[in-house]
């Protein structure tokens, strides 16, 4: 019953996101949608995804969107959220969507006949993977190749953000309000968050949790620190910061190559030490991903301040 209700609510909230008149409302509804998704993942018995969805899908994405909204003022009137000038396109899109919906419905209701039972395979090999939690085993042993590349994907997004920052915004010049009260509060909130993050990291070997969820908590911590106007440790050491950004990918590559250099396969973990290697990779990933996720937030081009029109970019000299 609750499943039917939840499954029905999801598209309705999505419709609300798409049809909201004001953009701000749409974003807030989107965050609500993300939290709802987290609930859905719990019902689908995927607690890892519930954690990730709440922290990354709703939390971080929401913060990113809200932050961007703060810098964008609507030059268009708030009404008419959908294209109204091109009725032909609208009809075409709706017809296409209807057709796709029918095909999809047929495909989803078709009886399933999987040729391989992958969950059984996972259960069979989890002993050899070095960790006890199946999702972690898939992410860092069976399909570690995907995870390695995924870290590279985040890094690319951050690099593009860094490349497109206006040349005159340096972090030191931005002064944000700092109140002693907020800082006092942060002084005990932050250690707590750090503990939660480390707990999530550690528990990932046995139960739901792991590098990505821990990193999201840590990134939230950094965002809080930043918003409170605090100087981040290492903020004025660009090289150190860069090293932190690439540290996760670098560690993953290096530890993944240990067996390769001894004639084994890439991303194979040494037999006795698989658990330790995975924990090492996860630890490096946690800290590095936290920085990366935070950098996704921080690296966005800041608005031009008075008297400093943004540079249009590199002009050939």
């Amino acid at each position: 019953m609750i499943d039917l209700l939840l499954a029905l609510t999801l598209p309705l909230v999505a419709l609300g996101v798409l049809l909201a008149r004001e953009l701000f409302r749409a974003v807030v509804m989107f965050i609500a949608f993300g939290l709802l998704m987290a609930l859905v993942w719990v019902r689908l018995q995927a607690p890892d995804l519930a954690l990730a969805e709440a922290a990354i899908g709703a939390g971080l994405t929401g913060v990113l969107l809200l932050d961007a909204l703060g810098h964008l003022r609507q030059p268009h009137p708030p009404g008419q959220p959908l294209r109204s000038l091109l009725p032909l396109l609208t009809i075409l899109a709706l017809v296409l969507a209807g057709a796709l919906g029918l095909v999809l419905l047929g495909a989803l209701l078709e009886p399933l006949q999987p040729s391989v039972n992958l969950p059984a395979e996972v259960a069979l090999h989890i002993e050899a993977s070095g960790v006890a939690h199946p999702v972690t085993a898939v992410l860092l042993a069976f399909r570690a190749w995907d995870t390695l590349l995924e870290v590279a994907v985040i890094l690319v997004a951050v690099v593009v953000g860094l490349a497109l920052r206006f040349s005159h915004d340096d972090a030191a010049a931005e002064s944000r309000v700092s109140s002693p009260l907020l800082q006092g509060m942060l002084s005990w909130l932050l250690p707590l968050m750090l503990l939660v993050a480390l707990y999530l990291l550690w528990i990932g070997s046995y139960r739901s949790g792991g590098a990505f969820q821990a990193a999201a908590v840590m990134a939230a911590m950094l965002v809080l620190l930043r918003l409170s106007g605090q100087q981040l440790p290492g903020q004025n050491h660009p090289l150190l910061l860069r090293a932190g950004l690439v540290g996760g990918l670098g560690t993953f590559l290096l530890l993944g190559s240990v067996q390769l250099l001894q004639g084994g396969a890439f991303l194979a973990w040494p037999e006795q030490l698989a658990g330790a290697f995975i924990l090492l990779v996860e630890t490096a990933l946690t800290f590095s991903l936290a920085l990366l996720l935070y950098a996704l937030f921080e690296a966005s081009p800041a608005p031009a301040r008075k008297g400093h029109p943004p540079r249009t970019g590199d002009q050939p000299s």
Binding site: R143, V156, V159, A163, L164
Partner: peptide, 21 residues
């Protein structure tokens, strides 16, 4: 894996296009 590869390729290509700002 092709999905992840395509995203990596797409994002870096988009970044390269945007590079001049």
């Amino acid at each position: 894996n092709l999905y992840v590869g395509l995203e990596l390729l797409g994002f870096s290509a988009v970044g390269l296009v945007a590079l001049t700002g």
